[in-house]
Simulated assay, not measured.
Amino acid sequence: MNRRNSRGRPGESEVITRVRTPNKKDREVLGTVISMLGASRVVVRCMDGVTRMCRIRGKMKKRVWVREGDVVIVVPWEIQDEKGDVTWRYTGPQVSWLERKGYLKSP
Rank of each mutant, 00 (worst) to 15 (best):
M1F: 11
R4E: 10
R4H: 09
R4I: 13
N5M: 03
R7E: 13
G8P: 11
G8S: 10
R9H: 12
R9F: 14
R9V: 15
R9N: 13
E12R: 10
E12C: 02
E14S: 09
E14V: 12
V15H: 12
V15G: 00
I16M: 09
R18Y: 15
R18W: 14
R18D: 09
V19W: 08
R20W: 10
R20T: 10
R20Y: 13
T21M: 11
P22A: 07
N23Q: 06
K24V: 03
K24Y: 02
K25R: 11
D26R: 14
R27S: 13
R27D: 15
L30T: 08
L30Q: 06
L30A: 10
G31S: 08
G31T: 07
T32Q: 13
V33T: 04
V33A: 04
V33C: 08
I34G: 00
I34C: 03
I34T: 07
S35L: 06
M36H: 02
M36G: 11
L37F: 01
A39G: 01
S40I: 00
S40Y: 13
R41Q: 14
V42K: 01
V42I: 15
V43H: 00
V43D: 07
R45G: 04
R45M: 09
R45P: 00
R52H: 06
M53F: 00
M53R: 09
C54P: 01
R55N: 12
R55A: 02
I56Y: 03
K62F: 06
K62C: 01
K62G: 02
K62R: 14
R63P: 00
W65E: 10
E68M: 09
E68A: 09
D70A: 06
V71S: 01
V74I: 10
V75Q: 09
V75P: 02
P76D: 10
W77R: 01
W77K: 00
W77V: 00
E78K: 06
I79T: 11
I79Q: 05
Q80C: 10
Q80K: 10
Q80E: 14
Q80L: 12
D81A: 11
D81Q: 09
D85H: 05
T87Q: 03
W88Y: 15
Y90H: 04
P93S: 02
V95G: 04
S96M: 07
W97E: 14
L98I: 05
E99I: 09
R100E: 15
K101I: 04
K101V: 09
G102E: 08
Y103K: 00
Y103S: 05
L104P: 03
L104I: 15
K105V: 15
P107L: 12
P107M: 12
P107S: 14
